[in-house]
C-alpha cells in the first residue's frame, strides 16, 4: 500500500511512447488544419523557419488561419459527406441492433456448453481479415454474383446491389455485428432467471416480461454495443470504398481521397478534426458507461 513507486515507474515508457507517437501527431493534425495547401514537399505552408528563432515561430503563428475550415463550410461536398457518414453509422447501428439482439438473446438462453461454442462461432470470423470479409461480399453482391445466381435459380429478377447504399449497410452489419452481439450477450447471460420467473409469477405473460424485465435490464449492453458500432462506423473507410461505389460519400473516404488523390493535406486534417469533434460525445459516453459497468461489476 505504501510505496507504489515501482508500479508508477512502469508508466514512463508507454507514457513517452504515446506522447511522441499519439499526442504530438495529434497536435500536428490540428496545426495543419490551420495551414494552407502548397505545391511543395511537404505540400503545405507555412513551415516553421527554425533558423530565424523566435521571429520564425511568430511568423509561422501569424500565417495560420481558419481558411481551410471556411472552405469546408462553403463546400457542400464536405457537409454532405459528413451528414451521410452520421446517417450511415446511425442506421447501420440500428440494423446491427435489430439483427444482433435476437442472436444474443438466443445464445444467452442456450445451455452453457452450447453457449461457449456459439460464442466461439460468432467471434471466429472476426479473427480473419476485415478486408477479406468485405471482399467476400463483392463476389456475392456484384451483378453476376452469387446473390443474383440464387435469385435467378428460383425464378426471380436479379438485383444490382453492389455500389449502392444497401451494399454499404450489408457490409457494415457484417463487419460490426459481433461488437453488438457480445456486449448484449454478456449482459443477458448474467441476467438472473428468477427475475423472469418472478415476473411470470406476478402475472406477466412471457412477451410482456421480455419488454418489462429482459429489455430494460439489457440496456447497458445495448448502449455499449451501439457505441462500439457507431464510433468506428462514422470513420469507416473500407466498407464504403469497396461496396459503396463512387457515389457513396463518407467522411473516412473523404479524408483518404483528399490526402492521397488530391494531396490536400490541410483539408484532410481539417476534416479529421471535425470528425473527431463529432465523436467526442459518443466516446466520452462510452468511457463513462464502461467505468460504470466496471464499478457495478465489483
Amino acid at each position: 500500500m505504501k510505496t507504489k513507486r515501482g508500479e508508477r515507474l512502469a508508466a514512463i515508457a508507454p507514457f513517452l511512447w504515446l506522447g511522441v507517437f499519439f499526442l504530438f501527431p495529434f497536435a500536428l493534425v490540428l496545426k495543419l488544419s490551420f495551414s494552407d495547401q502548397a505545391l511543395a514537399m511537404p505540400p503545405y505552408a507555412p513551415q516553421i523557419d527554425w533558423s530565424a528563432g523566435l521571429a520564425g515561430i511568430r511568423a509561422f503563428m501569424s500565417a495560420l488561419d481558419l481558411e481551410t475550415y471556411a472552405r469546408l463550410k462553403s463546400d457542400d461536398l464536405y457537409l454532405v459527406a459528413y451528414l451521410s457518414s452520421l446517417r450511415f453509422a446511425a442506421i447501420g447501428t440500428l440494423l446491427c441492433l435489430l439483427v444482433g439482439y435476437p442472436i444474443a438473446l438466443g445464445m444467452a438462453r442456450c445451455a452453457p456448453n452450447t453457449r461457449n461454442i456459439l460464442l466461439l462461432a460468432v467471434i471466429l470470423p472476426f479473427w480473419t481479415s476485415f478486408l477479406i470479409r468485405v471482399y467476400a461480399w463483392i463476389a456475392i453482391l456484384k451483378p453476376e454474383g452469387l446473390l443474383n445466381m440464387g435469385l435467378e435459380a428460383i425464378g426471380l429478377p436479379g438485383l444490382s446491389v453492389l455500389n449502392t447504399q444497401a451494399a454499404v449497410y450489408v457490409g457494415l452489419i457484417y463487419c460490426y455485428l459481433p461488437f453488438m452481439v457480445l456486449p448484449i450477450y454478456a449482459v443477458l447471460e448474467k441476467q438472473d432467471h428468477s427475475l423472469l420467473e418472478a415476473a411470470a409469477d406476478l402475472g406477466s405473460p412471457p412477451w410482456k416480461s421480455f419488454w418489462q424485465v429482459t429489455v430494460p435490464l439489457s440496456l447497458p449492453g445495448v448502449t455499449a454495443g451501439a457505441l462500439l458500432c457507431f464510433i468506428p462506423m462514422v470513420g469507416e473507410f473500407v466498407v464504403p470504398d469497396l461496396l459503396g461505389g463512387v457515389q457513396t460519400l463518407m467522411i473516412g473516404k473523404t479524408i483518404w481521397t483528399e490526402f492521397f488523390a488530391n494531396r490536400d493535406w490541410p483539408s484532410a486534417s481539417a476534416v479529421a478534426v471535425v470528425l473527431l469533434l463529432t465523436l467526442v460525445i459518443p466516446i466520452v459516453l462510452y468511457q463513462r458507461q464502461q467505468a460504470k459497468a466496471l464499478e457495478a461489476g465489483r
Binding site: 507514457f15 501527431p25 495529434f26 500536428l28 473507410f237 484532410a268 479529421a272 466516446i283 462510452y286
Partner: peptide, 26 residues
C-alpha cells in the same frame, strides 16, 4: 495517462494514420 492509453482504440483509423504520417513527415 489512461485517456492516452485507451484513446487509440476508439480513434478512427483514418485519423490515426493521418496523424502518424504528419509526424513522420515533420
Amino acid at each position: 495517462f489512461s485517456g492516452l492509453v485507451y484513446a487509440p482504440m476508439v480513434m478512427p483509423e483514418v485519423i490515426l494514420g493521418l496523424s502518424l504520417l504528419l509526424l513522420f513527415v515533420a
